[in-house]
């Protein structure tokens, strides 16, 4: 099985250098930010690796995982991390971060899918920076592929996948035929969430995303990493989303101490209007 996994880097929320907005409010200041892969994309990569191996030790790979990202040269760090984790090949689509929107990325990915012909495009349900949650859906529409979103489980079957999606009160199971687009939710990395046809049904993965072995991190430097120009994938680079301004959320006000329960109830009722 050949799987294409699009990855995006996002600002690391745990890092000391927080996202800053200049006084003009015209943009988001990205200099000095520490980056990390979008967590949902990491889950997609983990799921892709599980789908292309048998779970045994030492594991036997069956298939290819290709990762792709859009951005300037330094986004190759994100790709090399993915190669270290187990991806076989990487592609960087050279583009400026502020010249992209979800629709353009989906259009370019469509061209890339037509070139690479993967059986499956596996991606995070959304990036945690813009929280747009649209690239997977637009891509499936453009390709006219079957689509399953917010996957919590995946089971490979002949020529397709059974995808479980958690909804209120239960789980919907969707059957998608390859080629397909699937976006994943966080439960996809639970120990029994993903089974390839080669993985024993009793096998359990470690919870969460795997660690890259130290020699693999070094060896990742030698794995293929290709650069593609955005123009080669998308002739029309027009943006459908324009940003009109940014503003930091208001700082949280200090809390207050209430005298007693009567005071609490009174304030909840009259000030917070919560009762």
């Amino acid at each position: 099985m050949k799987i294409l996994v699009p990855l995006k880097r996002v600002a690391d929320p745990d890092n000391a250098n927080k996202v800053k907005i200049p006084a003009s409010g015209a943009t988001i200041e990205t200099t000095g930010l520490e980056w990390k892969p979008n967590p949902f994309d990491e889950y997609a990569l983990e799921a892709a690796l599980r789908l292309t191996e048998d779970g045994k030790a030492p594991k036997v790979r069956a298939g290819e995982v290709v990762v792709v990202t859009f951005g300037p040269k330094e986004t190759e760090t994100t790709l090399r991390a993915a190669l270290a984790t187990g991806a076989d090949r990487a592609i960087r689509v050279d583009a400026a971060d502020d010249k992209l929107d979800g629709h353009l990325v989906a259009r370019a990915l469509k061209a890339l899918v037509e070139r690479e012909k993967p059986d499956l495009v596996l991606m995070g349900k959304q990036a945690v920076d813009g929280d747009s949650n649209q690239v997977g859906q637009i891509l499936a529409e453009q390709l006219d592929y079957p689509m399953a979103t917010f996957a919590a489980t995946m089971k490979e079957e002949a020529g397709g996948l059974l995808v479980g999606r958690e909804v209120d009160g239960g789980v919907i199971t969707l059957r998608v035929k390859f080629p397909a687009v699937v976006t994943v939710d966080l439960r996809i990395v639970a120990p029994t969430s993903v089974y390839s046809m080669k993985t024993a049904p009793a096998f359990k993965y470690n919870d969460g995303v795997r660690f890259a072995a130290l020699p693999a991190i070094m060896a990742a430097k030698k794995k293929p990493l290709a650069e593609v120009k955005l123009a080669d994938l998308a002739a029309d680079q027009g943006l459908r989303v324009t940003y009109h301004g940014f503003q930091a959320p208001p700082a949280r006000k200090a809390g207050i101490k209430v005298k007693d329960v009567t005071d609490l109830v009174n304030r909840l009722k009259n000030e917070a209007k919560a009762l």
Binding site: T77, F211, A212, L214, I217, M218, K221
Partner: peptide, 14 residues
């Protein structure tokens, strides 16, 4: 180097 920082990040998560 970049690889060393990656190793460090992995180890830190562990």
């Amino acid at each position: 180097s970049e690889q060393h920082r990656q190793i460090r990040a992995m180890l830190r998560r562990f």
